[in-house]
């Protein structure tokens, strides 16, 4: 892994000129070896921030750079070799096998003409193995469960062999075991030097698996820092407009004592 990561500085963006800001003065860095979790209520600008960092949107103010080079100056295929993205959902108009979908991750390396060589097949097999999808590699993606299909899409991004991975709610719709497996995978990818940003609604998993949290509210960065800095009851209550109590994760495990936010029944707080 090379490069100093992906950085957005003082980003502002709105979808219509003169319209409301979707993202306002937000800075975020996706550094090698670090898992950054972006949290916030619905409509707080999480997905817009991800799209700005991925190059899919251009910021109105601020700049995004990848290893000191402005992202907009990096050619599309070079960018796709370095940044992998798992969007929230995608259309699937025609049937396609798991293997063929993962193979799409090699496009930035192959381009229009080059045939897949051994190292391309190896990258695909590795990606499928990491995401435990190799045993149904020949099935049609349309027949898979939501959790299986999500893992296939993560595998496609890993087949890109990126140094940065951006995921938009990758654990949505996954059951308990698959959620834990996915977060463990992301953490171990970071351990190998990948820089990871994931959008999530699960404060508690974010607190256990991410090195840093970024809490957005109405387009602004309300808090950022370690889980201990962000998962605090007054802060969360202000953002989510709901009473919470923060307790320590009882363990056992490497994440023992991670702060966990438990939403209270409304009537407890007067």
């Amino acid at each position: 892994m090379s490069g100093a990561g992906l950085a957005g500085v003082d980003l502002s963006f709105r979808y219509a000129p003169q319209g409301p800001w979707a993202v306002r003065d937000v800075s975020a860095a996706v550094e090698p070896g670090v898992v950054l979790a972006v949290l916030g209520p619905n409509g707080s600008g999480k997905s817009s921030l991800l799209r700005l960092l991925s190059g899919a949107l251009e910021p109105e103010v601020g700049r995004v750079s990848l290893g000191d080079v402005p992202l907009s100056r990096i050619p599309d295929r070079d960018r796709a070799r370095r940044i992998g993205v798992v969007p929230q959902s995608e259309p699937s108009p025609f049937p396609i096998s798991v293997r063929d979908l993962v193979a799409m991750g090699r496009y930035p390396h192959l381009g229009t003409w080059r045939e897949p060589a051994r190292r391309d097949h190896e990258a695909m097999e590795r990606a499928m193995h990491r995401c435990s999808v190799e045993h149904f590699a020949d099935r049609d993606v349309g027949t898979l469960s939501g959790g299986e299909a999500q893992r296939v899409r993560v595998a496609r991004a890993l087949a890109q062999e990126p140094e940065i991975l951006l995921l938009d709610e990758p654990a949505a719709g996954l059951d308990l075991r698959h959620q834990m497996e996915l977060h463990t995978l992301l953490r171990s990818l970071a351990g190998e030097g990948m820089g990871i940003l994931l959008i999530t609604h699960d404060l508690n998993l974010a607190s256990r698996f991410a090195h840093r949290l970024l809490l957005l509210n109405e387009g602004h960065a309300t808090a950022k820092g370690t889980p201990g800095d962000v998962v605090r009851d007054t802060l969360l209550e202000g953002v989510y407009q709901w009473p919470v109590r923060v307790v320590e994760h009882p363990g056992p495990g490497p994440d023992v004592r991670a702060p966990q936010a438990i939403p209270l029944a409304r009537r407890v707080v007067e």
Binding site: A56, D76, P87, P91, S92
Partner: peptide, 15 residues
């Protein structure tokens, strides 16, 4: 092939 999966996906894969 990539565009059939949506323009977002195609963009992220370098198209």
């Amino acid at each position: 092939d990539l565009l059939a999966r949506g323009e977002d996906v195609a963009f992220h894969l370098g198209v």
